[in-house]
């Protein structure tokens, strides 16, 4: 059909434009990491680094604490997302599958939480971490990040739970499966893509966080990568090449992982929907 072909042309053109706008800043980020310092921030912008240098990556790699901070980021994020999503999943099942008094209220509260300006909670979090004597421990960050991840995760997962036709589950129940088993065998696999999508979301809000990571930790050994990156930026001595190199190293694996799980997730979701 010509109509369809036309669609494709428009879509493809639009896709190319999207690609260019989203990637140009990242191209700049990448090329900055490959430039010698005298080509970064010049009055005639250098569009193509020449020669391409990997010295910045060497600097990044040799930076004291780079691997430690990478490890800290991974551990803290994994814990926050793992625990947050775990708790959220159960609540989402309850909210998406049962009616009970206060259910709507609970969901509204989840939205309300999103509306509290995070900056205003800075001092309360600091004071509480002191009261609990956990200031300066990495567990504090995990707790703060769970508080970032949890409300939205419950909310998003609830949507995924609802999207699974209840008939599927009921069929399993009718077949004599126990409710727990129906959850595990039927519901869970169908929501798995949703869990992945939600996790990506939670992952990013913890992975990139800076202010709390900076203030609630006490020593360079506890730095996460954003904090380490920021420590390279001084008023007169910003080593942008190294900063950009580090953020490439920090970003690419995350994006690759997302890409991998996203394709799976989307595939799984459609499969579930169609087979249902």
């Amino acid at each position: 059909m010509t109509g369809r072909r036309q669609h494709h042309v428009i879509a493809n053109t639009f896709g190319v434009i999207t690609l260019l706008t989203s990637l140009f800043p990242l191209y700049w980020l990448l090329t900055t990491s490959l430039k010698p310092a005298n080509q970064i921030r010049t009055t005639d912008p250098v569009l193509f680094p020449h020669p391409v240098e990997f010295a910045n990556y060497q600097t990044a790699w040799n930076t004291e604490g780079f691997l430690t901070s990478l490890k800290n980021s991974v551990i803290i994020t994994a814990l926050a997302v793992g625990i947050g999503i775990g708790i959220a999943f159960f609540a989402a099942v309850a909210l998406g599958r049962f009616w009970f008094r206060g259910r709507t209220l609970f969901i509204v509260i989840l939205i309300l939480i999103q509306m509290i300006p995070g900056e205003a909670l800075f001092v309360p979090y600091v004071v509480l971490s002191q009261d609990l004597k956990i200031q300066g421990k990495m567990v504090t960050l995990v707790l703060v990040y769970i508080s970032f991840v949890l409300p939205l995760s419950i909310w998003m997962l609830r949507g995924f739970v609802r999207a699974v036709p209840k008939e599927i589950e009921e069929a399993a129940l009718v077949d004599g499966a126990s409710r727990a088993k129906a959850f595990r065998k039927v519901l869970f696999p169908l929501i798995a893509p949703g869990i992945v999508a939600t996790s990506i979301f939670g992952f990013l809000s913890s992975w990139n966080e800076f202010v709390y990571a900076y203030t609630l930790t006490n020593s360079p050994g506890q730095y996460t990568v954003p904090v380490l990156l920021h420590s390279f930026i001084g008023p007169r001595t910003a080593d942008w090449g190294a900063v950009m190199a580090m953020s490439v190293v920090f970003t690419v694996p995350a994006a690759a992982f997302f890409l991998f799980v996203q394709r799976r997730a989307v595939g799984g979701l459609t499969a579930g929907a169609v087979k249902g």
Binding site: T18, L19, S22, L23, P25, L26, L29, L204, W207, N208, F210, V225, P226, L229, S247, F250, T251, V252, A254, A255, F258, L259, Q262
Partner: peptide
């Protein structure tokens, strides 16, 4: 991929 990269950039 582009969208994910943008999203994942600090």
């Amino acid at each position: 991929t582009g969208l994910l990269l943008v999203w994942a950039t600090p």
